[in-house]
Design a protein around this nucleic acid. Structure first.
Lengths: 116, 116
DNA sequence: ACCTATTTGTCCGTATGTATG
DNA sequence: CCATACATACGGACAAATAGG
């Protein structure tokens, strides 16, 4: 488990932390059940504030990728498993939308309002 | 515009603020284009911290209900665009993901990592 | 059943950055 | 150029759930 950030990046720190974990899940380096280091540990390692890490963790929780429990820590959630497969079709959709001038962010917004 | 909270409630303050605004939108008391009072004003009125209000506002933004702009304030967002065709395939993908136990929010997060 | 340490959750305060008007 | 208002980050404090002794 390696969470990395780039102080020079224009992206917010909390977003970088979330993105780093997300990438590890997509790449299969993190699988359901795996535990992330505690927010405090990550914060100390990266030399950033605990709240910044917690914000990243909570964002991932909102995305359904992380299971957070007080006193227990952060665990990759079960629903994070079949992501690699979906990622392929997702890219196709994004490409198609892009050709229509629809930005990924717009698609993402649409997606949140889509009921299955 | 009246945002109310209950100090005795077990629900978090930021959630109560978000819920209050959400209710007003659902009830039609707030329509697209309407401006919310600034976070600082709400905080002072309710005697809570600005961050607590901002957190509520940002959650509503993540839900697609609010449009936040620096220096301008918080505006109820216009309902989503047409994109009917795209929405159809989108729903199919969401349904497929759902069958795999993957939440829409997870897909939306994935999208951020997808390059077109 | 009790106590303690751990770890996330919330809230407050402060400071600085940045887009808007 | 300047005031406004959201955005991010840091710091501290206490609460609440969990796990372990």
């Amino acid at each position: 488990m390696l969470i990395t950030i780039d102080a020079e990046s224009a992206h917010p720190l909390f977003e970088q932390v979330a993105s780093s974990v997300r990438g590890d899940i997509l790449a299969g380096r993190l699988v359901p059940g795996d535990r992330l280091p505690t927010a405090r540990d990550v914060a100390e390692t990266l030399e950033i504030n605990v709240h910044t890490v917690l914000r990243a963790y909570q964002q991932l929780r909102d995305e359904g990728l992380l299971d957070l429990r007080r006193g227990r820590g952060a665990v990759i959630s079960a629903s994070a498993a079949p992501l690699a497969d979906l990622a392929h079709d997702l890219q196709a959709l994004v490409a198609r939308a892009s050709a229509l001038g629809v930005a990924p962010a717009t698609l993402a917004a649409l997606m949140k309002e889509t009921r299955s």
